[in-house]
């Protein structure tokens, strides 16, 4: 049984397998390196990076919900200069395919980070985060309006040759419309979904549980929503999709591939099971084989209605 799990994406971005650490749950890598074989991952999307340091939101920042996790971290990060000096070298040494998740309060701030990352050795791709629900200015508001999403992606495209994916919010009526807007602005890929906006109540203190009041819901609870968005977006655009939302097993990965994703990101489950991404990568060939697929590529889009699977980039 030889199952090809490699993934070819636009602008020459190739992954040895489709399992990428999702932004925000994996820090910049070193903390998990004790538990995770980082070099064996398909890639690592780092915690969101802004031009200047961001302090993040008040605590509590996490709250457990049924089959889910509500978070309001607020994109705390040390800023792009510190990231490049202190954090990127570690991941580069691990031979990780590093995807830099970029964030900003304004279009210009996104462009600043994108420009700074361009030609930086060890940066393989950018993920434009226009979908974080936990910041007041910018963030998700860019991802909820097709014109603003277009503007951010356009500004990023003008300053970088790197493969760029845009991370979509599920907190919109038609994710496909946002996807089309960023595709038109030059996005190479879509990653979806970011977290769903939610609220938890702390009964004991009679107030919202999170310091940031609302938070972003992740974990298995959101998997059906994520699959629906991937399925919808796959029929709306011609660029590859990186799917995520509640993935915890290799069969979950296959579901996302069938719904139209070419690769996936894995996040929340890592908090419970630090080694899970490596375990998924090990199990994936067997799962693909069991269901009659000779490669990851073979499975992509097979659940989409009456159309051939979307072709990957890389040509």
């Amino acid at each position: 049984m030889v199952i090809d799990v490699s993934v070819s994406l636009p602008r020459g971005l190739t992954l040895k397998n489709p399992v990428i650490a999702a932004s925000g749950t994996f820090g910049f890598g070193p903390e998990y390196s004790r538990y995770v074989d980082i070099g064996a991952l398909g890639g690592v999307s780092v915690k969101g990076v802004s031009p200047e340091p961001w302090l993040g939101n008040p605590t509590p920042r996490v709250w457990e919900t049924p089959l889910g996790l509500l978070n309001s971290i607020g994109l705390q990060n040390p800023g792009m200069d510190v990231f490049l000096q202190e954090d990127l070298p570690f991941l580069r040494d691990q031979n990780a395919v590093v995807i830099v998740n970029i964030i900003g309060h304004t279009v210009d701030e996104y462009a600043q980070v994108a420009a700074r990352m361009n030609h930086e050795p060890g940066v393989a791709a950018l993920e434009v985060n226009i979908s974080c629900p936990n910041i007041k200015e910018g963030g998700m508001s860019f991802g909820q309006d097709p014109d603003q999403a277009y503007a951010v992606m356009k500004a990023v495209r003008q300053v970088t040759d790197l493969p760029v994916m845009v991370k979509l919010s599920p907190n919109v009526t038609y994710p496909g419309l946002i996807a089309q807007a960023v595709e038109a602005a030059g996005a190479d890929m879509i990653s979806a979904i970011n977290t769903l906006v939610g609220l938890a109540i702390d009964i004991k203190h009679r107030r919202p549980a999170l310091g940031g009041v609302t938070g972003g819901l992740s974990g298995p609870a959101i998997k059906p929503v994520a699959l629906r968005v991937v399925y919808e977006v796959a029929q709306s655009v011609n660029i590859p999709i990186i799917g995520m939302g509640g993935i915890a097993t290799a069969t979950d990965v296959l579901e996302f591939l069938l719904a139209g994703a070419q690769a996936v990101m894995v996040g929340t489950v890592t908090f419970q099971y630090p080694k899970r991404m490596n375990e998924i990568i090990e199990a994936l060939p067997q799962v693909l084989h069991e269901y009659g697929f000779a490669s990851v590529r073979d499975a992509v889009g097979q659940a989409l209605p009456g159309r051939a699977p979307i072709r990957g980039g890389g040509q």
Partner: peptide, 30 residues
């Protein structure tokens, strides 16, 4: 503090501390 990963990656369990120049968050878990 409410904790996520417990090993320093997720920045959930932070506490406000006096930094060199201004306030900063430190990780309770780390």
């Amino acid at each position: 503090q409410r904790m996520g990963c417990g090993i320093g990656a997720c920045l959930a369990c932070v506490v406000k501390a006096h930094g060199k120049e201004h306030a900063e968050y430190r990780r309770v878990c780390t």
